[in-house]
Amino acid sequence: MSTLAITPGALGAVTQETPGARILRRFWGNPIARISVVIILFFALTAGGTALLGALGHHWPYDPNLTNLDQKLLPPSLQHWLGTDNLGRDVLSRMLNGATISLTVGLIAVAVSLGIGVIVGAIAGYFGGLTDQILMRSVDALICFPTFFLILTAVAILGPSLINIVVIIGLVSWTGTARLVRGEFLTIRETEFVKSARVLGQKDWKIIFRHILPNASAPIFVTAVLGIPDAILTEAGLSFLGFGVQPPQATWGNIIADSKTYLLEAWWLILFPGFAIFIASLAFYLAGDALREASNSRS
């Protein structure tokens, strides 16, 4: 079955709609997608708002790093909605700051991996031959590595700073994108419009960026969205092991890591940050999946 299959009834009814608009309409028609987008927006606004407030020298509700040993390990209350940690710091304030870190990590790591993945995949798929062989065999080899452990090793060697973490996550997780882009390029390269562009003597880079890449944008965008929660979960795991963004900067992972010794008495220290990681990741995954469904011409 070809992706161009058109049912007789569909013809004429939706001819003016652009592919992008069609994907968006179908995406928005999915209630799960709408809920996910709302959660992501909430998450992004919280992260952005906290960052902005911090840049202006303000904090809400408290300074995330303000310790108060008189108020340590307090359960959730009206003063401290999500309780306090072992140093008396307000968990909600720390979690709001953690949101900024998680979102930053997710977006930048994906940008890095997308950049590498698209370039490698495009070169391999467009030029083919030996170039393709060398690049794809390297991808095959890299895929064999235990991803999380490889990242942990690299972060441990280079030092756990925010920039190192996002670059390393990006450097290790581009293989899926490269494979996908290569596959798309192999297909689109053989289409008539690309062949005619080549016959007309257009430059390779122009064909790649003007003709092929836009036609592969939907699946690339889907992998990008699905890559964000992967990066968030990876950073949380690193933080938990002590190799994430370093204290005193709060991250969702290190709030849990710091509370290891108090686990049995201070449930709020593990429950809330973990739930935040979980919900944020879930929203991105569901949105990405809904987007994939919406851009799937078959369903």
Partner: peptide, 20 residues
């Protein structure tokens, strides 16, 4: 939904919850 629920669960978090 259940599948993505499982994928989105942070491993260390659920390990802790189960362990506790």
């Amino acid at each position: 939904f259940v599948a993505f629920l499982f994928i989105a669960l942070p491993g260390f978090w659920i390990s802790y919850l189960i362990a506790i």
